[in-house]
Simulated scan of single mutants.
Amino acid sequence: MWKLSNIKAIIQKLRVKKPWDDIIIFILNILIAIPVFIIIHQNLVDPEWPFEIDRILLFIAIVVLLQLLLRLLRRVIIICIAAYLFFLLFNSIFGNFGFWSVAEDYNAMLYNMSEDPNPQDIIIAKLLPFPNKSKILDAIDYDNPDVRNFALMATTKHFRNINKYKEYRTTVQCFAVFKEIKKRWNYVNDPRGREYIARASETVQHFSGDCDDHSILMAACIRAIGGVPRIISTDAHLYPEMLIGTQKDFEAINYIIKEVLFKEESKGKTVHYHIDEHGQIWLNLDYTATYPGGPFMSEEILGALTLY
């Protein structure tokens, strides 16, 4: 059996001499503080304090607490380093929060803290029935082979090599559909004196029509590849939106839109979205937008038709 003196001798050999122990403690503190801060940041409700003061104070508190803890573990600091590296390496291979995830979440967090997205809370100004609801639902024939095949083609044509964001693969593929429809869309009015509602399988032949037809086609294609769309009704206008998810999801998606997928189209511009009564975020995909989350053509919302 090992004696206490043997254990003390091993600990003494592993102990780092001054001043290197203080330097290592500080570096290890920052390396641990960043992922810990990201996890807490993503699970806290944002009180929307000015200049992100709440997040700054949170990070300082985490650093101070970790500094005290690591000083208590000064004698086994090398073991702490080994445990930290093993944890990140293990999660990089087998888990969901490894080296890449830390860097990705950190970039997205900093980007969103410096950006100024434009959230809009949904307010149903008038309790009006959704116009042509049954006809529009019938027209969103997402299980039609022509609709499904077009959506699949778009996902192979755009953003296919974006492999870093596996968690948001479906969202990225829906953005590919948006890009392809945007490139092809030709606005054409309905017949005079008549509201013509085309099925998605009809519109996909020529990519032409009015806002109703665009919304139906976009909703059908997004639904066909696993996304969750909805159509918003405003005064004399319909447009599609797509479910993004929570605030955490939006932080990542905002970064992906502005720094990866639509960097040129969104340069210097704001990402627009709505927050529903459940706190879920929906991104604008109107044909007037050049990137997902482009400016709203009409602000006042009169109704929403969601396709779960």
Rank of each mutant, 00 (worst) to 15 (best):
A252P: 11
L285N: 08
C80A: 04
F178W: 05
I216G: 07
T171Y: 03
R160Y: 10
G293K: 14
P119N: 03
A304T: 09
P129E: 09
L70F: 09
V228M: 05
E264D: 08
I24V: 07
I32D: 00
Y142P: 14
F178G: 08
L238N: 05
L72S: 08
I244S: 01
E104N: 06
H278T: 03
Y165L: 06
R74L: 12
Y308N: 14
I39V: 03
I197W: 01
L4R: 15
G294L: 14
I244A: 01
A125I: 02
D146K: 15
Y111A: 15
M242C: 04
A224K: 11
H214S: 08
I38T: 01
K182H: 14
G279D: 06
K18R: 10
N161F: 10
F262D: 08
F99R: 08
S134D: 06
Y84T: 02
D276A: 00
A151Q: 05
L44Y: 12
K164P: 05
V177N: 09
I77W: 01
Y187K: 14
R223E: 12
K126C: 04
Q247A: 13
F250E: 02
P47D: 06
K3T: 07
R75Y: 10
L88H: 02
L73Y: 04
C211M: 11
N149K: 13
I39R: 07
A154F: 07
E202T: 09
R199N: 14
S298Q: 07
G98C: 10
L128Q: 13
V271K: 12
L85W: 06
